[in-house]
Structure formats: C-alpha cells, structure tokens
C-alpha cells in the first residue's frame, strides 16, 4: 500500500527579471493512499505538482513536511528499499541509445538485484508483451518514441515491483501503442500491484482508474472514483472539472 500523508514541497528559484530568489510551493499538503490492485489516476495541468509528487513517492525527492510509506517503508528513512519495491517510469524517454533492450534490461536487472537469468527471462517476457521482442537485439539509438517508451516500461517492471508509478505513460504514443500500455496496466492491477498513473488523457482515466486525485496549484482536489468526482463538480467529463478548477483558480 502507498500512503501519502500531508506532504509539502517547496523549491527556491531565481527570478530572472528581479534577480531575486523566491520560494515556490509546488506541493501543499497532499494526502492520499493507493491499495494493492488499485489504479490511482493523478491528474492536473503542467506544473501542478504531479511529477514532484511522484518523485517524492519514488524516494528521489524528500518532502519537507509529511510522510510517505510504500508497503511499510518510509521514503525518507528507507529510500533504497522503497526504490526496490516500486517501478518508476518518468516523463523523460531516457534510454541508453548504445545498448540493445536486452542489454539494458540485464544491466538494470543487476542494479535492482535481480538474478541475471531471471532478469533476462523476465525482460524478454515484458518485451514480448509490449510487442518489442523483434527489436530485443537492436541498438536503441534508432528507436521511435513509442519503442523507447516500451523499453522504459519494461525496465520499470523488470524487478517485479509491488508498486508502479507511471508519469504520463502514453504521452507521444500512437493509439495502438497506448492501448498496449493500458492493457499492461490492467494486467498489473490484476496482479494486485498498486499503480499510480499521472496523465492528461482524460478518457483513459475515466476508463481504467479506480480512483482519481486532481492536483491544481499544488493542492489535491477530490480523491474519489471518477464518477464520484464528476457528480461532486456537477459536470459530465473530467475535462470540465479542469476548466472549473481553472476558472476558480483552484478554489473549488
């Protein structure tokens, strides 16, 4: 189970015009939890604080206030254990172009402490599931965005994590590839993993997320199943919830 309790995060940035430093509150007291077998949709516009929240859950950043536990491990005290428990897919399509998917998965298997034979077998299984097995031994420098995304997904799932954090997993993907990713997420849910997906694609959220949290200006608005959110705001689509929040400046 992933438990996020009242987390806060601020960044100090330099204003280029005034040349003064100012503090930006990126996350302001967010709390929610995700159970095994549940897909949680984290929605919000660019710069709302979604990626920062996911990075804090992944143990890459520390909240200044509040706490996060992932299957009983605190992200501050046991960040390495946390990172071994979860699979993280970032928005950057970062793959090592000089490696083939097979090589990359073997290396990352070692990083995650997975036996090399097991890592290879599981890596090939994931590549097959993601319809990429024909490219297992091709250098990734010539891969398309979709192919790179698939390899990144395989890398994130390689060590069989209990929790999965996907930061905008379908961005830049064609419809078919996006469907493959969504199908995989459903499988993850069936395997009793706790999944958090950050996205802009509203139909996807409505279709597959068990619960949704909308981040706007660093605050979480609504933490409920999609239908409940819609009735809460008296609208018929999640897009409209967004517009309403934007019009109210996040006060709704």
């Amino acid at each position: 189970m992933i438990q996020v309790k009242d987390i806060h995060k601020t960044f100090v940035v330099k204003d280029k015009k005034s040349r003064k430093k100012k503090t930006i509150e990126a996350v302001k007291g967010i709390s929610f939890s995700v159970k095994p077998g549940e897909i949680y949709g984290l929605l919000g516009p660019n710069g709302a604080g979604k990626s920062t929240t996911l990075r804090m859950i992944a143990g890459l950043m520390e909240p200044q206030q509040g706490s996060i536990t992932v299957f009983g491990n605190d992200t501050k005290a046991d960040s390495e254990k946390v990172r071994n428990t979860l699979g993280f897919l970032s928005t950057d399509l970062g793959v090592y172009g000089r490696f083939t998917p097979r090589e990359l998965l073997k290396i990352f298997g070692e990083f995650q402490g997975v036996d090399s034979v097991v890592a290879e077998r599981r890596g090939l299984y994931l590549l097959e599931r993601l319809e990429l097995s024909d490219f297992a031994d091709v250098k990734m420098e010539s891969f398309s965005s979709g192919q790179k995304q698939k390899v990144s997904i395989a890398r994130a799932l390689l060590h069989d994590p209990k929790a999965i954090l996907f930061d905008e997993p379908t961005t830049g993907l064609d419809v078919l590839t996006a469907k493959t990713v969504l199908d995989l997420l459903k499988i993850m849910k069936g395997e009793e993993r706790a999944v958090i997906v950050s996205t802009h694609v509203m139909p996807m959220v409505e279709q597959m997320c068990d619960r949704v949290g909308i981040i706007f200006n660093g605050k979480l608005h609504g933490d409920a199943p999609p239908k409940e959110i819609l009735s809460q705001y008296g609208v018929s689509t999640l897009d409209e919830v967004f517009f309403k929040l934007a019009a109210d400046g996040g006060m709704a």
Binding site: L60, R83, N84, S90, D92, G94, Y96, F111, G113
Partner: peptide, 17 residues
C-alpha cells in the same frame, strides 16, 4: 550527458544508493 538524455533519473530510480 545522462541528464540531457533523460537517463539520469532512471538510474537514480533504481535501488542503488
């Protein structure tokens, strides 16, 4: 280079200290 290529974060997200 790793930061520019977006691979640094994937490395940091592993269980390695």
């Amino acid at each position: 280079g790793e930061r520019e290529r977006g691979t640094l974060i994937t490395l940091l997200a592993t269980g390695l200290p």
